[in-house]
């Protein structure tokens, strides 16, 4: 059978479900952020599919583009925070070593 809306929705649903699984099973912050990216991708597949099969025009594609932009921004902030934590871990270790020496 040929491609229908349902095909794409199934892929979007699977991406979303696997993203949720990633979020709940991982303890690593970067891993959880990857799960969020999967969720957003599932959303984008849905949006583009609805746009193509149901709504027409390009509104869904524009929506998906904005989602991509915001996802990039969110990833930037999230990873900046992860790196800061990494730095503070290291700096805490260094300070600990200093006090031990005194």
């Amino acid at each position: 059978m040929h491609l229908t809306l349902t095909h794409f929705l199934v892929v979007g649903a699977l991406l979303f479900a696997l993203g949720l699984v990633t979020v709940v099973t991982r303890r690593n912050a970067v891993g959880i952020l990857m799960g969020v990216e999967l969720i957003l991708n599932g959303t984008n597949v849905n949006l583009a599919a609805f746009n193509h099969y149901v709504v027409g025009g390009v509104s869904g594609q524009v929506f998906a583009l904005f989602v991509i932009v915001l996802a990039a921004a969110e990833a930037a902030v999230g990873l900046a925070i992860v790196l800061t934590i990494f730095q503070s871990f290291r700096s805490i270790d260094v300070r600990l070593a200093d006090t031990m020496r005194e």
Binding site: R27, N28, A29, V30, I32, L33, M34, E37, A75, L79, V82, L83, I85, F86, F89, R90
Partner: peptide, 16 residues
């Protein structure tokens, strides 16, 4: 993300 993984991988996992 790859950057973050490469930079933080050495100290194990940054756990929440």
């Amino acid at each position: 993300i790859l950057f973050a993984v490469m930079l933080t991988n050495r100290i194990g996992e940054v756990n929440v």
